[in-house]
Design a protein around this nucleic acid. Sequence first.
DNA 1: AATTATTTTTAGATTTGTCTAAAAATAAAT
DNA 2: ATTTATTTTTAGACAAATCTAAAAATAATT
Lengths: 219, 219
Amino acid sequence: MKFSVSEENYIKGIYHLQAETGMVNTNSLARELSTKPASVTDMLKKLKAKKLLNYEKYHGFKLNENGNKLALHIIRRHRLWEYFLVKKLGFTWDKVHPIADELEHVSSKELIEKLDVFLETPTIDPHGDPIPDTNGKLPAIKQINLYGIALKKVVIVSSVGNQSPQMLDMLKHYGISIGTKLTVNKVFDFDGSMQIKISKMPGCIISEQVAKNIFVYYD
Amino acid sequence: MKFSVSEENYIKGIYHLQAETGMVNTNSLARELSTKPASVTDMLKKLKAKKLLNYEKYHGFKLNENGNKLALHIIRRHRLWEYFLVKKLGFTWDKVHPIADELEHVSSKELIEKLDVFLETPTIDPHGDPIPDTNGKLPAIKQINLYGIALKKVVIVSSVGNQSPQMLDMLKHYGISIGTKLTVNKVFDFDGSMQIKISKMPGCIISEQVAKNIFVYYD
DNA sequence: AATTATTTTTAGATTTGTCTAAAAATAAAT
DNA sequence: ATTTATTTTTAGACAAATCTAAAAATAATT
């Protein structure tokens, strides 16, 4: 089945909202998609007719099996493109979202599978979010906060809590980005700062505040 | 200025038709775009209002300066994506057109420039068509006569001197058309005939006379 | 429980791009 | 030079996606 760009954007919007709240309501989806509640109601009827969600009027809605599957496929496309834009074209991670929002609607299945192979089947996108596989399954990655990690273990940076330009600037200075492998060598009790080591770079010290914003998983 | 997918497709269609005939007429554009003449007339008014073409009703139309520039930018995007799909993702050249038709409308200027750098600024796409540069200028490709070309080099057929039905019939028989990649393997001194090889086809021999009517450029 | 406030839906309009069918202009043929 | 044929344009309708303004349903408050 083929879906319009607009329909796909609604599905994605609903998916993101229901991840947090379970049931979604008209106003919050209108806000999420920068549109009006009346437009949301109109589209909900269409999506219900296409059997993508459960919807009883005046009582909220949520994606069903089909809707969830579709959402995950759209998200797969989005995150694979983001990965491509950062790793291959050299974009910084804070610039890729709007471009991936356009690319994600290019619908060729063969394109996405070949892109996936070309990128060597990544599982985490440049923002640290997991990339669903061909079947729409999310990889199980347990993210752990860097602050409180076991010493001397190699971990991989998977996401960053604070994605402000200031934080980005700081991480750039330290040479830390999504996918960076590092080891915590020591924690200073005095102020909670940590000495970390990235291969081929001199060791450095990051503050407790920075560490608490970095999430990792074991290699 | 921002243009819709539909507007861009019309501009591209007009560009392709006027390359052959100079002035374009309503019916042929409708045929080219698989739409109806009435729809073409409607769109022509819009494109005239946007100052992309010269149009006097009942008397045909053609792109002006702005329209030509836009067309070349769209074609640049299309051909860069085709190059990417073939050279990086491993598509065969006969499968990429419809996908590039979608990708070409993703409008980020920065995306196209970074893609261009990533691909190392190619000048010829997988079909043998030239790729316009950042400013919309078509690269000057030096056409060389097939007769007297270096042996064993891959060349691309760019034009044919004699366009008589007899010649076209003959080229069709050999499987040679614009964009065909071939290699000259041997020249027979006796009569100047050449043994050529087109990929996925058995080698064949063409006369000196035919060879002198075929123009190519290096791959 | 009745009133007030909020949320959601309907009704009707708008924009973009398309269509069919009929009218108008141009081109071709006798 | 008329008639006939073709091409192009208009007029009016339609589908998708949106909007505003008003009505209906639900939730919150006294």
